[in-house]
Amino acid sequence: MSGSHNLSRRDFTKAVMTFVGAVMGAVVGIPVAGYLVSPAVKAQKTDAWVTIGPLDDYTAGQPALFSFTRAKVNGWEKTVNSYGVYVVRAEGDAVKVLSNACTHLGCRVTWQQDQNAYTCPCHDARFGRDGEVLSGPPPRALDGYETRVENGTLSIRLLE
């Protein structure tokens, strides 16, 4: 066996090893990457009307909290998420429904009648009656929902 022959044989084996390794790495690696990030890619879309109840139950000018739950399938289990919304009724049928999740980091805000503001327990953010930012770190006003009143019953459109 001559030296050069030996060398080329080594190089050949190395090339084959690299090739085979690359093929196997790709055939396993790409699916594995997809497998791991899969839940991040497959987002569930929600688009539903949620009944809040008779509009007449709400006093004008007085934000009132309404809570409801939605069930969602996450992988192998059913997750029940609870939602809180503030119903802010103006005169007549004019109504605004605001999410109680702070737009900063998602902590739940509460209406403080004496301060005339929603306050967030996490970073002391304050929002005005219609959701506008009064003070603190939130980037935008409280999120509102599309509303609908049919036969005096208020519904909101839940979009996620």
Binding site: V28, P31, V32, G34, Y35, S38, P39, V41, K42, G75
Partner: peptide
């Protein structure tokens, strides 16, 4: 439910 889960379990 998971991308390529069938392949990984199959292997």
């Amino acid at each position: 439910g998971v991308a390529f889960g069938w392949l990984i379990r199959g292997i």
